[in-house]
Amino acid sequence: MMRPIMLKGHERSLTQVKFNREGDLLLSVAKDRVASVWYSSNGERLGTFIGHIGTIWSIDIDPESELVVTGSADFSAKLWNARTGECVHTWSLPSPVRRVEFNATGEKFLMVTDQVMKQLGSIEVYPVNRSGPQAEEPMLTITTREGFAKATVAGWSYGGLYIIAGHADGTISKYDAKTGEFLASTKPHTETVSDLQFSPDGTYFITSSRDKTAHILDVDGLQMLKTYETDAPMNSAAITPVKDFVILGGGQDAKDVTTTSSKQGKFEARFFHKVFQDEIGRVNGHFGPLNYIAVHPQGTSYASGGEDGYVRLHHFEKSYFDFLYDVERTAQATASTQTEVN
């Protein structure tokens, strides 16, 4: 189906991979404390961001591809100049940073800080100053509410109106992105939410969990729209543009796998039909669990970051785009004939 490009640049497990808005750049972070930038077309490494002294859990790039933010287990978050690779600012924090994400305009970013010792986890929003020094203090802090497990992942909804967070107990919560006011929560998963990625328009999102499932929920109602069931803990889930698919990645943890067979570990990217919820295909190749899946914003490729230390970049072939259920084909044909009639 696809010919992968192996990005061999990290020495330890990947934690997150991400495309920039245009999709020409691919960013990756790993437990080896280095963040890398790659050309997505050919897998050539453009450069690295060096400075963290612990696992980098998360990375994001702003829409203009000027600034990069990283969150690390070294109790810090760093802002980088994407072109030069130099560190623009470092925020020292009371706990590790599990997730960072710019909003759609790149004016601010959120970070999810871990719960350590007495320190409650929180979601913090920092403004981004492009012309001067960065603010040390967050513009908004959403501390883990009482009765809630710590947040593991979070992201911006459409228009940057809401922040959606996934929690360690499987809960999904929703906050007003301006005021930080708690709006709603639901509990679609029974175990920790490992990933949360939005649709291109930010109106719905997919969550993956260690409970071996993934769900699509809508932002407005937090209604569970779709469910994808697998046979292994899931670390990541992404929604593909262009085609109505979702890609799930995960696998048994290394400690749970008795043999080294990659088959048994279920280290495969799983493609599901987004609407019909059934599995269409799998792509194997990783020797360990898939820790993160990112899809090219134009839907032309996807990248998976594995526990095995590799990033595999897959460009979709024509057959991928041609694949349609008869039902979809019919619907398209009807729609096209109708428009012709009109």
Partner: peptide, 23 residues
Amino acid sequence: LILLRRRLLKEWTSWRQTVVEKL
């Protein structure tokens, strides 16, 4: 199955329509 898929596709398409309108 096909009927189910048809329904799912229809529901999804109409939901997307309302979302797009809202946006």
